[in-house]
Design a protein around this nucleic acid. Structure first.
Lengths: 337, 337
DNA sequence: AACCATAATGGTACCGATACCATTTTAGCG
DNA sequence: CGCTAAAATGGTATCGGTACCATTATGGTT
């Protein structure tokens, strides 16, 4: 035993000083309707006097309820995910839930490990990013019966409930927008495709919008990079040097788009006259850039809120009214296109 | 009971099919050196066959070890905090720890609530941001004996261990840098002072650097805003309209600095010729902006790593070699000054 | 082959809260 | 005032691991 074993104050101690039974003390501290206000008062006072700190582990073991919700995101550094985490946390806090957060760095194996640990911790609900998971992960979750939400992208066949937007539609709309502006040679800078259904769908949206406009899909105009400003710049530099004649770029992430936009400016290209640039996500800085970035607005806040709402429903045992919540996107037209 | 009670597979089931006692099974699954490899194998196989999922709550109750570390940050949206969270999580994962994350939105009361809950969850360690806490929070932590790290700012008298940088020194150095460049009327845009020791120290650093240079501290050149690009722009607009003659601005956060920088550009001011702008944090986008932002580099990665390292030590029961880890900052000179 | 130190293993109790069912108290009513 | 239904409260077992101490195998030594 590393640290000296501590003798904690238990609910029995509280019960004793309050002159009630442990179970009554328990109920009083849970604000159960079953105990008389006067009793509740007594117990609360005793707890305070003794500086009682409950032991959730004992409660969880006994009730199989942990009041923990686990969320797995690819990473926390990307502000898009961070915002959603924040929103989920805020919406869940009033109900007494804490957030256990894991990042999988786009690895399905890591995700699987995380899911396994979280299930061991008897989390009350699980939130995953996207709908690409290992078979093992899926069967673990199904077998556990833990309420599960897949977020960001929507899928016809969610593990539990899906809350997000149609990345395909959004990318299609943005490409359409660029086409409508008269652009014909439109580059694409997206994230890495592997294990990232958002990027995959966005690429498809771009691809099919082009095809429907009768423009051939040209691989030499497509780049895939890690989500990093630098990478966006690099990809842009690369596209420009190898394809002098592109007149627009759709970057399927604002991080990449801003990198690309700044690279254009650095090369003294006029945006949007010489080249139009559009992004995806509506990162906070997108709106104050010069020129401001045309992008896809995603209701991050509402997504987080909806996730929290659905989770609480499912934990309560209610079936949510839908399996798929399409929270909708907005094409935000700004100066860069 | 909301969901139908589930009959879980327990370690006793595993032990039975492996033909050993529960305690041996437990040890085998912990990879204890005490069990023979052959036995470990048997148990592992049984666990796999039964799709055994351990119950950490039971383990925690019994051993008083949760393998959870709780971190409290003001918010997760700020990429600075997000990066540190990521780094702590990455460094702690190999040791089997998960992160319970709470945000207090700069409220000491909220922080206190979070600390109380986290202690109830018997977290193995606690990481707080800064060293401003309610008395109640401090006594809760002291009473619990939980290893605690205060991060970001360093303080002479930490609750446990302090890992961060001297915000005062960094702000002093940056102000000095602006002075060295010949600037005399230097504006300051910082975060809100309330419950934010980082902002407080940075303001002091700015203030005292001016004084030592024989320049009077002028309140009309100081602005305090929420950390938001918009707010940075707003503050800048405001400073410029009310003080035509300022020749530099030190924004004590890159979010604010970038907002300010972009506002200057929008007003067709030449940066740094007409006005110099510097920041704090070295946000990722700072380096690719045009002009790139002069700022204070903070070793976020190393801070996270060091925190994890110290935590593991303390959990092991070892005293860390120091109480205060000053991880150092770098003044990164770029085009904006 | 006997012996001993060490390595492996096992039995039982316990961590601290809550579930479950039983019991007591309270309040409403004729 | 007695009776009954409903409201409060209590006793005891239990959740599923691991601590603690005891016991049994194992292997090396002379």
């Amino acid at each position: 035993m590393p640290r000296p074993k501590k003798q904690h104050i238990t609910i029995r101690d509280v019960a004793k000083t309050a002159g009630v039974s442990p179970i009554t003390a328990s109920r009083a501290l849970q604000n159960s309707e079953l105990v008389r206000p006067a009793t509740r008062e007594k117990v609360a006072q005793a707890a305070k006097d003794l500086a009682y700190i409950p032991n959730f582990a004992a409660g969880t073991l006994s009730s199989d309820i942990s009041r923990i919700v686990a969320v797995i995101v690819p990473n926390m550094s990307n502000s898009i995910f961070a915002d959603t985490l924040q929103s989920i946390a805020n919406s869940l806090r009033p109900a007494g839930y804490n957030l256990l957060i894991g990042s999988n760095d786009y690895s399905l194996d890591l995700e699987q490990d995380l899911v396994r640990t979280f299930l061991s911790r008897r989390v009350d609900a699980l939130v995953l990013t996207g709908h690409l998971h290992s078979e093992e992960t899926k069967s673990l979750i199904r077998g556990s019966g833990v309420p599960t939400v897949e977020m960001w992208s929507i899928t016809d066949d969610p593990l539990g409930v899906s809350v997000g937007i149609s990345n395909y539609d959004a990318a299609f709309a943005m490409t359409r927008h660029l086409l409508d502006q008269g652009h014909r040679r439109i580059g694409f800078i997206g994230g890495l495709l592997e294990n990232n259904d958002r990027t995959q769908s966005r690429l498809r949206g771009y691809h099919e919008a082009l095809e429907q406009a009768g423009i051939e899909f040209d691989t030499s105009l497509v780049r895939h990079e890690d989500f990093d400003f630098d990478r966006g710049s690099m990809a842009m530099r690369n596209l420009l040097s190898e394809n002098g004649r592109i007149d627009a770029v759709f970057a399927a992430s604002d991080v990449l788009a801003l990198g690309a936009l700044l690279e254009c400016l650095r090369q003294n290209l006029k945006v949007p006259d010489d080249i139009a640039v559009s992004g995806f996500d509506d990162a906070r800085i997108a709106s104050i850039m010069n020129p401001a970035l045309t992008t896809i607005g995603i209701p991050r806040e509402s997504i987080g809120k909806k996730i929290a709402e659905v989770i609480l429903q499912m934990i309560r045992g209610d079936e949510p009214e839908q399996k798929i919540f399409d929270m909708g996107f907005t094409l935000i037209e700004r100066g860069s296109t």
